[in-house]
Amino acid sequence: MSDPILVIRDLHASVDGKPILRGVDLDIPKGEVHAIMGPNGSGKSTLASVLMGHPSYEVTEGTIKFKGQEVIGMAPDERARLGMFLAFQYPTEIPGVPLSAFLRSAVNSVREEDISPREFIQQLRTDLELVGLDQSFGRRNLNEGFSGGEKKRAEILQLALLKPELAILDETDSGLDIDGVRIVAEAVNRLKSPEIGFCIITHYTRILNFTSPDVVHILLGGRVVKSGGRELADHLEEVGYDAVKKEFGYTSDEAEVEEAPQS
């Protein structure tokens, strides 16, 4: 196992003064796929947003080190340029901005040198194919009028183009039919390399049937309560979240923290 690229220690975060993360510890090395599983309200999406620096969340304690650098206090674009990436649960529609123009701007922002137009077009064509989107999507406005599944695929498209060193997927599998889940998982499998770590946040185990995680973490009440191998996900699938909550001494209510609504 290589040194972890992401090291989270005792991370506490709140929104509008309400604590949601209550001491998260997590290590993700490059080249590994980690799954973070948890019931509704366990703090999964908050963790994703806090990692990427969403301005609505306040980190009250702890550290997030990425490639050895503290990222708390860094703007989202600085984190992205450092190599972090978040695939959104609910990708934002931006009217009038063509997907291709946005992608070129993004690629040029994270790369040291601007990509040549020819290379960009080739890369875009390849990656649209990878995620199963029609070539015409490049001309469409960013997420505007995309179906739920198309939005998720467009997130993976961005992941493929931006080549981050840490990819956080926030419930990318939610709301997808089984074909959609398979396409996302296969894209992840193809992008997997010793150069990238994956953090797949999910409610369901089905994406894990297509892309096998090296480590599974269970998030409850704003903390990682258990980590293990693939078998942990299978166990969860078998007994359900309520049994796990009980196992860790939570009543249903205690385990649920209110998450800030995403728009």
């Binding site: 620096g53 674009d77 984190r79 992205a80 340029r81 009217p95 009038g96 901005v97 701007s105 922002s109």
Partner: peptide
């Protein structure tokens, strides 16, 4: 936030949004 998460600095993000 969305554009920032893709590495696009705030001034460039604002420019994209205004052109959009």
């Amino acid at each position: 936030f969305y554009l920032g998460s893709r590495g696009i600095p705030p001034e460039e993000a604002r420019r994209l949004i205004v052109f959009g």
